[in-house]
Design a protein around this nucleic acid. Structure first.
Lengths: 197, 197
DNA sequence: TACACTAGAGAACGAGCGTTCTCCCCGCAA
DNA sequence: TTGCGGGGAGAACGCTCGTTCTCTAGTGTA
């Protein structure tokens, strides 16, 4: 019986967070009311407020979940690439796929930051942590290729720019543009790295 | 007397839009109420609603004003650069200055898009128009240098990435990173362009 | 002076939000 | 069968927002 509680309790949490993620991502946090979230998740309002103390807490849980799933999806694509150089480029292959999806509406972190970042410090911090995590991840991959450390943040900027421009212009070709730019930067970086050796 | 009306009337509009721009940019659109805007602009609510039919209309006016001022500030920096190549790099010099300002809180268009883009098609369109205008501007500058047309959108991505990352991480060095990346992309583009000639 | 008109200040209104409360039903023990 | 505890559904509450309305004071004119 205790075991059952332990098994169902997190599942409700997950349902709520997953539903909230979908709703918040597609329409924005403030455009989605608790009532709609309750209906979408099929949970009573009472239950909802027993799982989370407030809507803000749900927003943070959504960001945490999204950070995990983003990193997981990205790693899957990167890990599948054979060489360090291709692993680095796999980031942009992932972006090609993601920005091409019908449901793509930009980076959820950037959107939430624009909506709540200036008014909710916890949100701002969660977004910052995610973006710095991504930058560190790219830096690690870049180091594996033997790239000059200064190139990695440039690759990050290309990836971030894609998410913004693809969302705003509804144009899925930006990711391919980023991949081409990244290729140039990587090759140039490798050339200078080897010439310095 | 008629002349006086013609001179004061637009000034009230400008005051309202300028005030709204400041408030919306620093705290977000939905976090600023009409009452606060009214107080900030020193205008009666009645007058405010005679100038603008709704808050949405003010948001659009703010975006339009911001598009003009952005293009103006950017052009000033670009025009001051002596050579086409330096004009292109002046974009990033401008970003260095802007992202270093205390009041910098990211790109107002990206923020507003994240907040209202999915719920207000007019906002989404205004943001799209601005970003495509910027992309066209960069493409023009790149063409003046004799760059391959494929490089210009890569330069755009670097510029967009800067605005996102500088805002989120509160780190003003991203603009210099973008400038360095842009230099690499431009030089590589010029090399292939001349080798193809 | 008296009157018509305008404009400003802010009260008022209706809607919608996040959050809480109440009622009712169901399952279970005695 | 009867009392009881808990959970679900949604009504209710307090607040805030965008928008409108009302009241009042001031101004120009006959």
């Amino acid at each position: 019986m205790v075991k059952e509680v332990l098994m169902t309790e997190p599942s409700i949490r997950d349902t709520v967070v997953a539903t909230a993620d979908d709703l918040f991502y597609s329409r924005g946090v403030q455009a989605v009311g608790m009532d709609e979230l309750r209906t979408g998740a099929g949970v009573s309002l009472k239950r909802l407020y027993r799982e989370f103390p407030s809507k803000d807490a749900i927003v943070l849980a959504v960001l945490e979940r999204r950070a995990h799933s983003w990193q997981e999806c990205l790693s899957r694509e990167v890990d599948a690439a054979p060489t360090p150089r291709e692993k680095l480029l796999a980031i942009y292959d992932y972006l090609v796929g993601w920005t091409g999806e019908d449901t793509f509406r930009g980076c959820g972190f950037i959107n939430t930051f624009g909506e709540l970042g200036s008014v909710n410090p916890d949100v701002a911090e969660a977004v910052r942590a995610h973006k710095e995590g991504f930058a560190d991840y790219v830096a690690g991959l870049a180091a594996d290729v033997g790239l000059d450390p200064g190139v990695a943040p440039q690759l990050v900027l290309l990836a971030e720019g894609v998410q913004t421009m693809a969302a705003i212009t509804h144009d899925a070709t930006w990711a391919a543009t980023a991949r081409a730019g990244a290729t140039t930067l990587i090759d140039a970086g490798l050339a200078t790295a080897s010439s310095r050796r």
